[in-house]
Write a protein that binds this DNA or RNA. Sequence first.
DNA 1: GTGAAAGCGCTAACAG
DNA 2: CTGTTAGCGCTTTCAC
Lengths: 348, 348
Amino acid sequence: MAATIKDVAKRANVSPSTVSRVISNSSRISQATKDRVRKIMKELGYHPNYNARSLANQHTKTIGIIMPRSAKVAFQNPFFPEVIRGISMKARQEGYGLYLSTGQTEEEIYEEVMHMVEGSRVDGIILLYSKMNDTIMPYLMEKEFPFVLIGRPYDMPPGQVTHVDNDNVKAAKMVTEYLTLLGHTQIAFIGGDSEYVVTVDHLDGYKAALERSGLPVYDEYIVYNDELEEGGQEAIIELMSLTDPPSALVVADDIMTFGVLRMLYEMDVKVPDQLSVVSFNNVMISELSSPPMTTVDIHIVDLGSKAAQLLFDKIKQPELGPQRLLVPHKLIKRQSCRKLAAKEIQSQ
Amino acid sequence: MAATIKDVAKRANVSPSTVSRVISNSSRISQATKDRVRKIMKELGYHPNYNARSLANQHTKTIGIIMPRSAKVAFQNPFFPEVIRGISMKARQEGYGLYLSTGQTEEEIYEEVMHMVEGSRVDGIILLYSKMNDTIMPYLMEKEFPFVLIGRPYDMPPGQVTHVDNDNVKAAKMVTEYLTLLGHTQIAFIGGDSEYVVTVDHLDGYKAALERSGLPVYDEYIVYNDELEEGGQEAIIELMSLTDPPSALVVADDIMTFGVLRMLYEMDVKVPDQLSVVSFNNVMISELSSPPMTTVDIHIVDLGSKAAQLLFDKIKQPELGPQRLLVPHKLIKRQSCRKLAAKEIQSQ
DNA sequence: GTGAAAGCGCTAACAG
DNA sequence: CTGTTAGCGCTTTCAC
């Protein structure tokens, strides 16, 4: 058995409480005893027992990370590893540990969260996704348990939940306008899973841009997909077999774009010559597509570390009201878009 | 404050121990009281406190996952998310939680592991990597703490540590031979970080294959890189600027291959016409490269779930000796390799 | 500046 | 089949 606080106490001829106080570096202990006790701790290889400590002082110094259901798809997407990296950096800095959800279905995840919360397994929670009809968030709110959302709450009175997000509407509007500025008028949209809030935001931005440019919104130009690359592939077939196929594409996600690009290659449509493509995220390998893709950098790591920061603030000062943080985005121009020549531009 | 076991006991007119027993579904409790107590638990919204439980029965039902240092590079590579997914599936099935390391340097990780172990934060540990001169493994062995290694122990008497691995030597030999069968005699090797055991295994296999085919091993044909795609790019420049450049490449990793492919494209060397490429891992997006890459599927998810299984076995039966599991690999032929015509084949 | 004692919430002998 | 009791290892009043 590992050495306990009592063993140290005995050896140092002090009481357990004194040892406890030197662990927490209390100011009411003389430097002399501190030194002596610490020396003994070294000798005995003493390490405080986390569970005992958590039990006694009612906090765990660990935070829970909730992945979306279907970790399969999730983990394939570099988005999640990246936000976790962001969280991880901040957590380490603040001395917190990370507890990962493993649930595969909505119910499993719900149960898991419940266990984390009611079983005092974690001090706070970060939700890595935001979807509609979510049951987790309402639960957390009702319990008044510290949590922060990465993304934007939906179906909910505003100003209630602490979250960090990109301005996805604006970003989508921006890329769509970018495309119109290049002369495109036939711009299609391939969204992600329509359950996720980010998808509705993208769509809103896309529509707003079209309207602003006086361009019509065609329903056939709007398709959804939730299966990442495979999804991207199906979507593109649908789109390109239209009688009036688009000359430009707004794609929800870089990985999906890989699939789109691949499919396009096989269909022998040249990017960007025949079709321009922009997407979102700027994941590491984005620059390695052929051609290198133009995409929106959403600063994923920041999303993670900011979320963690907000959570720690909340944990330390529970009286803090709901916070909201927007992390900026940035268009990364590479080689998947082309400016149309004047004569190519179709009139509506 | 959340309801405790005492609250339930009082309400149900039983003793706390009885409640405890219904939680663990002891066979010595009558169905009647079980039902009654469970009903009360529902009513009160009772959930057992994890820390108290862990403290009392000396186990945590959670396992630690140790990532290699430089989570930056690590997390970029889909390998890690994938093995975690494998672990995650098995863990959930067995009712275990996942605790993730966050350390960025060898020392930080060492400390973290120490805390996990000595602080009774986890019941066992999975090491996601195996490198030379590692300090973590010796520590774990000395403590006789349950752990399993993904990869192969190095610098260590064999049969000491439980691990799951691919036969990387054989896999590398296989792909190299595949290349020779296609008529290639000038085969270069781009390895990963030379500190990692997988890299030395790849190299061994590569060399063995060359020797077996009576082909010489050129030092200039062997380069290492640890920075994934960027590394891949540097490596390829070195190689192709040789007076006698290779006609085929064995690359350590799919993501690196993306970089290689990209660079090759820019240098205007055609794959597979001018250069054949094979790599390892068969990560999800591998099939989306241009051209789709030929690679070795190492069944990453299995690596993870098998490792978890071995760990749980070990935890449940500590007397169990060191186990070893090899997960099979499989060559996935796609379009990055070409068979040389008879007249193209260089004589040595 | 330090010690004694109670308690965090649960489990596990030992009784009965 | 169920209750009593004594911890698990640490923190934290309250004394002195």
